[in-house]
């Protein structure tokens, strides 16, 4: 499963829509749409910069949700990536209700697996994608498997978005193996995929990947983005 992350409504709704379509046309399986929050603690300078730029232009979470709704006809699986407070402020059950049928699930970097339970108790019925990391213990796997999501998001680095993964380290290879051995879900590697070679390695080790920073860097130039997407596939 190959995926791309794009910051919603960035640099504007029209350009975003074109980038969105380009990702689907290039043959990717899913798209993650970032809904901006102004304290993005898991994001490096490129994605955080795009988020702040969007917010400064007046983009709100509702705008991005409308954008996602308007793109529902484009045949690609869709996920939203946002921070806990955006959903909390919108209303936990309300957000979930509005996005049901549009999204496969949500990726919330400041909701660790343990806290996902709390969102479910408060009426969040969309699948919350569970995280695995280089620090995940075998004893954590039961909690990951509780999730209704059919993918696990594996954070391939100790760090924030925009860091570089090293797929040759035994630690990473063994960790992915441990996770795959303990789940039926697809293991998607995120954070740290930059090149076609990274992407191929991620597919060999796990069940797919998602690229964020390198795609967001090209969101202002749809032609450059298209060329980049081709280099990944």
């Amino acid at each position: 499963m190959k995926g791309i992350y794009l910051v919603g409504c960035y640099p504007d709704a029209d350009t975003f829509t074109r980038s969105f379509a380009a990702v689907a046309e290039a043959g990717f399986d899913f798209l993650e749409v970032g809904i901006p929050f102004n304290d993005p603690i898991a994001d490096g300078p490129v994605i955080a910069g795009a988020i702040h730029e969007s917010l400064a232009r007046g983009v709100s979470p509702s705008h991005v949700m409308e954008n996602i709704e308007s793109l529902s006809h484009i045949p690609i699986k869709k996920y939203a990536m946002t921070y806990a407070n955006i959903i909390h402020a919108y209303g936990i059950p309300e957000f979930s209700k509005r996005m049901t049928g549009l999204l496969e699930g949500v990726i919330i970097p400041d909701i660790p697996n343990r806290m996902a339970r709390l969102f479910r108790e408060k009426g969040f019925s969309l699948p919350i994608v569970p995280f695995a990391t280089l620090e995940t213990r075998e004893s954590d796997m039961a909690m990951l498997n509780e999730s209704e999501s059919n993918i696990i998001y594996f954070v391939g680095v100790r760090g924030i978005t925009g860091s570089k993964s090293d797929f040759t380290t035994p630690e990473l290879v063994e960790k992915i193996r441990m996770i795959k051995d303990n789940t039926d879900k697809k293991v998607i590697i995120g954070f740290g995929i930059k090149t076609g070679s990274d992407a191929r390695q991620a597919c060999a080790l796990g069940d797919g990947y998602v690229v964020g920073t390198e795609a967001v860097m090209r969101q202002k130039k749809p032609e450059a983005l298209k060329a980049y997407l081709r280099s990944l596939i």
């Binding site: 603690i41 909701i111 660790p112 343990r114 806290m115 995280f131 990391t133 280089l134 620090e135 995940t136």
Partner: peptide
């Protein structure tokens, strides 16, 4: 609560 990236949980 503990609203931080998963990698910090351990």
């Amino acid at each position: 609560g503990q609203f931080v990236p998963e990698i910090l949980m351990p």
